[in-house]
Design a protein around this nucleic acid. Structure first.
Lengths: 207, 207
DNA sequence: GTCTATACAGGGATAGAC
DNA sequence: GTCTATCCCTGTATAGAC
């Protein structure tokens, strides 16, 4: 089946169908996850939602673990794109914006939680490395934001910014956890507080 | 309920054996978990470690989920007892002490992570309520510590302490996560920073 | 290349014998 | 209280149709 996905290129992608199928699997996986949660999103459930057998999924992903990791990779790529487009790295109040972003996607946060839990299994170095690298990456991104903020005089100068970056990511993660198990928890409030704490003495967050 | 597991009372507890067995299951579960992780700690694996079938465990715990929740409940009780004995609620630098405590028990932190992930499943309200209540409880405890610290002038007065309590717990959780997937992350450093941020301007943490 | 059918080992839960 | 046997589900793996 020579299905050309990209119109206008003129080059019939010989594996275009496979590429589309792969993307379809990832999309359906997220949908099924939203309904049935992590445990419920079995390979058979994903296959059923598409109309193929569970064995077919293995043409595209070696393991279920790898399938979910790819979901997370894709969401990360989308988030990076969105952040750059909206100039988030230059924007003040990004901590509360991050909190708001997290609250828009509770399913995604839950999936991350489930996958991190699996990454802590003794023989799952592969997933553990994924999250190790991911956290290093987002700490670096947070560090850049903090440096820009300090340049504007919005962050106190008596603290190590790399530690502050780790702390901000940690606060976001930890507040997400509390919020996921208890909707009464106000993530925005918590992230606003850490922004206030990071600001120089006598400064208040600008609207 | 004539349960008497404590020697010296003179009354032979009719269910003493059952109580001991129950405790034995919990103890072995932790040991097996340390070796095999969460997935590996199946009811059959725990049963094998004791010398009974997996079905026997159901006399003491309705589900595997409940068994692990009881492990966490017990660890929480022990932590509260230890904290009160060492007067932790009066002590300065409790954030870094908490970080140190977390690092002493990576297996326990991993177990909590796995159980929280399961608590996020759509039809697992029971576990979700457990963690919701647990977080409310430890936020309250953190709030008391912060109030005492403020009374001593160790915490700035322009922030809401209940939000600060949630933030400290979140920081501890989030830093734990980063440390679990990357031993290079320094939890103490992160918790020391949030202590510094909470201190009034011009104050430095006393040794 | 893509997919179905099938088999396998292992999981939690459960019923009923002893 | 503990057992065995069983049920249905899971992820993984392979063979072969088309």
């Amino acid at each position: 089946m020579e299905v050309s996905a990209i119109s206008g290129t003129g080059s019939r992608g010989r594996y275009a169908k496979g590429v589309l199928r792969r993307q379809q699997i990832l999309d359906r996986a997220i949908e099924v996850f939203a309904d049935l949660g992590f445990e419920g999103t079995s390979l058979r459930a994903i296959g059923d939602a598409i109309g193929v057998s569970h064995a077919a999924l293995r043409r595209y992903f070696d393991t279920r673990e790898e399938l979910f990791l790819e979901v997370l990779r894709e969401k990360d790529r989308q988030a990076v794109t969105q952040a750059h487009e909206s100039g988030l790295d230059e924007m003040a109040g990004f901590a509360t914006l991050a909190a708001n972003y997290a609250q828009q996607a509770p399913g995604l946060m839950a999936l991350r939680h489930s996958m991190i839990a699996r990454a802590l299994e003794p023989r799952n170095e592969h997933s553990r490395e994924f999250f190790r690298d991911r956290y290093r990456s987002i700490r670096d991104e947070a560090l850049v934001v903090l440096q820009h903020a300090r340049d504007r005089g919005a962050v106190r100068t008596d603290i190590p910014l790399d530690t502050a970056a780790a702390l901000m990511i940690a606060a976001l993660d930890g507040l997400s956890t509390q919020w996921l198990v208890d909707p009464d928890v106000d993530m925005q409030e918590g992230m606003a507080l850490i922004e206030q704490l990071l600001a120089p003495a006598g400064t208040h967050a600008a609207p």
